[in-house]
Design a protein around this nucleic acid. Structure first.
Length: 267
DNA sequence: TAGGGATGGGTAA
DNA sequence: TACCCCTCCCTAA
């Protein structure tokens, strides 16, 4: 379930669990066995995230992980591995099991920096410069709904935050980057900077706030299969929580986009 | 039991 | 744009 908030949360949890310790590192599935042996028992100094990239630091070796679409990391008291576990990082108290990652590889500091250099600003990092993203957006004729998903424009936003932040700011997903108003971009960025830390804190994406909360509207909370409270994501054909018209869907940038054609008219 | 989908992204064409 | 990989889970048959 990985958008940027998931990775930042994992970095915090992994740091809490293993920083300053010498965890055992193994590969129950076997596909990471050789590399696991290299860092097994080494001092772990912490974990960090940037966009959807996550890494653990073992002295001069960095374990670089990208969960992709289906990757998962679970932290729990040690138990026999279940399923295809690429990597287990374990202390006597906790085992972190990684399954289905798109990427899981040891890197040097220089190699990792080269990877991260390709990423646009991450709303979850305090040093992020939103103007770097704006300079790309204002020169592009691609729709903002595609640009938000492009990790070289800005990093960490995935399909849920894309749909939800555009809804919350009432922006039409199809407006081209070079026709988007600067203040609209600022509103998107500011909203992500407000929303995503809540995703890290709660470990899920909730975007329905203020007067539109189900409680405020006299309905029981509706939690989507993905585990959060949302306006439009995966709500195609259902009534918009704000105006009641049907939520629309189409594929944009290779992924299912959801939006309200009546509420989202701003550029 | 087979097939499809899922919050991602790299590569080839 | 199409296809591929990664894994798990739900649905239809």
């Amino acid at each position: 379930m990985p958008e940027g908030h998931t990775l930042h949360r994992l970095a915090l949890d992994l740091t809490d669990a293993f920083a300053g310790t010498h965890p055992r590192v193994s590969s129950p599935q076997g596909r990471f066995a050789e590399s696991a042996a290299i860092i097994d028992g080494r001092l772990c100094t912490g974990a960090q995230a940037n966009g959807k990239h996550l890494w653990l630091e073992f002295e001069d070796q960095l374990l670089h992980i990208h969960l992709g679409l289906i990757g998962k990391f679970s932290l729990a008291p040690p138990a026999p591995p279940r399923g295809e576990i690429r990597v287990r990082i374990a202390s006597p108290e906790l085992a972190a099991d990684l399954s289905g990652p798109q990427l899981c590889v040891l890197r040097t500091d220089a190699e990792l920096r080269a990877q991260l250099a390709k990423l646009g600003p991450d709303p979850l990092r305090p040093d992020a410069d939103p103007d770097l993203a704006w300079q790309r957006i204002r020169r592009s004729n691609r729709p903002i709904g595609a640009l938000l998903m492009d990790q070289s424009v800005l990093s960490g936003v995935g399909n849920v935050y894309r749909a939800e932040v555009l809804f919350r700011q009432r922006i039409r997903p199809h407006i081209e980057g070079n026709r988007l108003k600067r203040k609209s971009w600022q509103a998107i960025w500011d909203d992500l900077v407000w929303l995503m830390p809540q995703g890290v804190r709660d470990n899920r994406i909730d975007t329905v706030r203020d007067e539109h909360t189900p409680e405020a509207m006299g309905r029981p909370p509706r939690v989507d299969d993905h585990g959060g409270e949302v306006y439009v994501y995966r709500r195609s054909q259902q009534p918009c929580l704000v105006c009641g018209s049907r939520v629309r869907t189409e594929v944009l940038a290779g992924r299912n986009l959801f939006w309200c054609g009546r509420c989202q008219r701003r550029s």
